[in-house]
Simulated assay, not measured.
Amino acid sequence: NLAYEIVEFEKVIESQYITRSMSNRADELAIQAKELSLKNVRISKLSNLSLQLYSLFLKEGYVKDDAGLKRVTAYFERKLPKYKFSELGFREKLFLYQAYLWHSFILQDFVLSYRYSQKWVDLFEENPEMKIQNPVFYLKGVNYLLESLYLIKHKTKYNKVLENLTADIKDENITMNENTKTLAFLYFNQNKLNYYFLEGRFTEGLSFVTTLLNKIPKYENNIDAHHIMVFYYKIACMYFGAGKNEECIFYLEKIIDNKELKMREDLLCFSRVLNLVAHYDAGLDDNIDKLIVSTYQFLIKMNDLHQVQRKMIQFLKNLKNIYPQELHKAFIALHSELLKYENHPYEKRAFLYLDILSWLESKIQHVSVEEIIRQKAGKLVK
């Protein structure tokens, strides 16, 4: 970097003088050059680790079993360079927090994700000039802080951070160019959708979805297919929560029918599971057996057929054999069966994408999914 190059250049100049008065300065320069060289190596290792973990998360999502946990943890520990925190500069801390954030995300330790995303954002608050110099990293940090808060369901903090992001964008507290405008659009709208989910306000969120769908074409040339499909999945969830199953299916099919799509495998899998549930709720069960088989085969192919998905698919497959008067008991039985996986270290990931427990509770209590989730939202951290 520039500091290292300056010191090296000064060393060249100093080397042309051999007076005794210059000896101390030469020693100082040698030490500075060594320290800066070590710093550059550390920055490189930390940024590489962060990038590789991010790539892993995009491809595979959360860890699925003990083997995955051990593999990711061993990789993280092996690649994490040794450091003294007191010696770290801004960039080193930034990449360190990023690496820990991605590690915790992959392991589904969302409290730890919150901690490191908060450290990431705090780093910029402590160095406000960096919001101007590195607006992309700042926006990303805020986005991951919001995502972490959403996953631990801390409503008050979530709403405050979202308000701050909105103000930063509106007041242009960060450098605004084509890239940052696109990121601001992406992060604000993704997190606004999550806001409606967190509050259980799906019907109200439909007007926001309409506005969003009108805006996406303006940005789609600057947003990769993965993030467009994430929008579609969230939009499908909004329609599902509002009881609009056919609209939900419409957006899920945009994901399912895209054979060239490169996006997180777990999102591809849960798009198909939600598609099954939406077909059932919409009464579109003429081809549901075919859908069940194709979904089952896809999950096996993706190595993502875990107990929650397996039991859910089996339940839907057996529905045609259940008498109407027995259906209520069947919903209760499945709910009891799945409830034990809610806090399972690996099975719980299913509930991050599809709140199947709330869906079952809506069937058991004969109320809408939206009503169930709104009741739960009222009990969250205020």
Rank of each mutant, 00 (worst) to 15 (best):
V7S: 05
F9D: 15
Y17G: 01
I18L: 11
M22P: 00
S23V: 14
N24M: 05
A26D: 14
D27R: 13
D27L: 15
E28I: 09
E28W: 10
L29S: 14
A33R: 08
A33H: 09
K34A: 11
Y54V: 00
F57I: 00
K59F: 09
K59Y: 10
V63S: 12
F76W: 09
F85K: 09
S86I: 12
K93H: 13
F95N: 06
Q98V: 03
Q108V: 06
F110C: 03
R115L: 05
M130S: 07
K131W: 04
V136C: 13
V136P: 11
L139Q: 14
L146C: 05
E147F: 06
S148G: 00
Y150L: 00
K153W: 01
K153V: 03
T156H: 09
Y158K: 03
N159T: 12
K160F: 07
K160P: 01
V161S: 06
E163T: 11
D168I: 03
K170C: 00
T175N: 06
M176H: 05
N179T: 15
T182S: 10
T182M: 12
T182Q: 10
F188G: 08
F197N: 04
F197Q: 04
T203I: 10
T210R: 08
T211K: 09
L213F: 01
I216D: 01
I216Q: 02
E220M: 12
I223E: 00
I223W: 00
M229I: 00
M229K: 09
Y233P: 11
A236I: 10
Y239P: 12
G241C: 13
E247H: 10
L252M: 05
L252H: 04
I256P: 05
D257K: 15
E260S: 15
R264G: 11
D266Q: 12
C269M: 12
V273K: 12
V277I: 14
Y280Q: 03
A282R: 04
Q297N: 03
F298K: 15
N303P: 03
D304W: 05
L305V: 05
F315E: 07
N318K: 15
K320H: 15
Q325D: 14
Q325V: 13
A330C: 07
F331T: 02
I332N: 07
A333Y: 11
L334V: 03
L334Q: 08
E337M: 01
R349W: 02
Y353I: 02
S358F: 12
L360A: 01
E361G: 01
V367Y: 13
S368A: 14
A377Y: 14
L380C: 12
L380V: 10
